[in-house]
Computed example of a mutant assay.
Amino acid sequence: MAPPTPPPDAAIAHAAERGLLTSRLDHTIDRDTFSPALLGLLNNVLVWGGSRVLTTLHGVGTNEWRVLSALGNYPGATARELCAVLGINKSIASKSVNALVEAAYVGQVDGRRGSRHLFLTDAGAALHDELMTIALRRVEILQHRLSPAEVGELNRLLRKMLDSADDLQEYERELLAGIPQPDTTRSEPNGVPAR
């Protein structure tokens, strides 16, 4: 990605008059070598593009597709189990499940202690298959510059990073210990919950 165009001299002069910093900081993150920045950028490309396409063509977004995909693998999963499998928070799961139930793509069956087991309907399975075709083609395009060995290595490394998620969250808990936390359920990036 190309860096932003430098602002015109007049804008820099006006910013300096207002006491704003106009020079690059001495210590910054190199976004071309900082893995979280690269992963975040790639995630945004996937989520926003995918959501635009899926919403326009089928009336469902990326989160609904994730739920359909998970239920294709785990019929009868509860919303809580979907949160764990997909790494999304309860509010995102609830909103997506409700939209899919309302559209008759998912049905619910009562379980023990008030739990609800979720299953695809025939219409949900058909939608799953249509969306899977799009998802697989998007990944094929995204990975076409990688060899099969590189794709395998990339996935291995990503799984290895995910194995460190608990360590990262422990560090975050230590940083925030004793500090009152605001309710961030609505503003968490991509609905990712704290573990």
Rank of each mutant, 00 (worst) to 15 (best):
A84F: 09
R112V: 15
L82C: 02
K95S: 13
N98P: 03
Y105F: 14
F119G: 02
L86F: 14
I92D: 06
D129C: 05
E81A: 15
G111T: 04
L82T: 02
V85T: 15
A79D: 01
A84I: 15
D110G: 12
S115R: 11
S91I: 12
D129Y: 06
K95W: 06
E81P: 09
L120K: 04
T121Q: 02
V109P: 00
S96H: 10
N89A: 02
L86D: 14
D129S: 12
L86Q: 12
R80E: 08
K95R: 15
A103Q: 08
S94E: 14
G111D: 02
L82P: 00
D110I: 13
A84L: 14
S96T: 11
L118W: 00
E130M: 11
R116C: 02
L120D: 00
L120I: 00
H117W: 02
N98H: 12
D110E: 14
Q108V: 06
M132Y: 12
L131Q: 01
S94N: 06
I92F: 06
C83H: 11
L131W: 07
H117A: 10
V106W: 04
S94Y: 07
L100M: 00
V106P: 03
R113V: 09
G124Y: 05
D122H: 02
G87V: 11
A84P: 01
C83K: 10
S115E: 11
V85L: 11
S115I: 05
